[in-house]
């Protein structure tokens, strides 16, 4: 993989992160991060959908009539999402029940439409595919970080396994009920943005 392509893959992890820098896809980031497992599955689903819609749209980009391009993009994204939803229902039924409507709502996830418009419409298929994976991972990373904190402090477990020892509970420790609420996810995303911006000064707006 060339240096340029690698940069395209790794940029969205940090300086171009879709969630913390571009503030896209916040809605689902709040909704599916109570437990780690749905967050991971949601992250994977978004990676698959962004990567393949970018690929398909980029491949068709010269034959798409500009006047109906948004409709075409929506059709492609919706097709991908329905396929992902069907596969989840067939093979990871319990997770697909937890994700419920949010898989369907990937269709409206701004990250995907944003990447299609900004990147796939003007670039070759392979770089677009890489860009899609990069942005999908950038989204998934934030989901996983938020979900790890929320599950650990909200339920005392990770991926369903008990992490906080029983002795703590016997000594009077209690799970933080706030962590279960979507509000806390928003606060956590805020904290991540804060840390990121104080560490990478170039993200701060000019005074």
């Amino acid at each position: 993989m060339s240096g340029k392509n690698f940069k395209m893959l790794s940029n969205p992890f940090n300086l171009q992160n879709p969630v913390t820098v571009q503030i896209l896809g916040i809605c689902s980031a709040l909704a599916v991060t109570v437990k780690l497992k749905p967050a991971i599955v949601m992250g994977l689903s978004v990676i698959v959908v962004t990567a393949f819609s970018n690929l398909v749209i980029s491949w068709m980009r010269n034959s798409i009539p500009p006047r109906i391009r948004i409709i075409v993009q929506l059709v492609v994204v919706a097709t991908m999402v329905i396929l992902v939803d069907q596969v989840l229902r067939a093979f990871v039924y319990d997770v697909s029940k937890q994700l419920s409507v949010y898989v369907g709502l990937i269709i409206t996830n701004c990250i995907i439409m944003g990447r299609l418009e900004a990147f796939a419409m003007g670039n070759k298929p392979w770089p677009s595919f890489i860009d899609g994976i990069g942005n999908g991972i950038g989204y998934a990373v934030i989901l996983i970080v938020v979900a790890t904190v929320r599950e650990l402090f909200g339920s005392g477990t990770l991926l369903g396994f008990k992490i906080v020892p029983q002795a703590f509970f016997d000594a009077g420790y209690v799970n933080n009920g706030m962590m279960i609420m979507p509000t806390m996810a928003l606060i956590l995303v805020g904290v991540i943005i804060w840390i990121q911006r104080s560490y990478f000064k170039q993200l701060n707006e000019k005074e």
Partner: peptide, 23 residues
């Protein structure tokens, strides 16, 4: 534009019904 939309929709419909039947 019309031909493009019609062809696209037919392909998508075929793909989705195939996936739904298999799964």
């Amino acid at each position: 534009i019309y031909t493009f939309s019609i062809v696209m929709v037919v392909i998508v419909a075929l793909l989705l019904s195939l996936a739904a039947m298999q799964l």
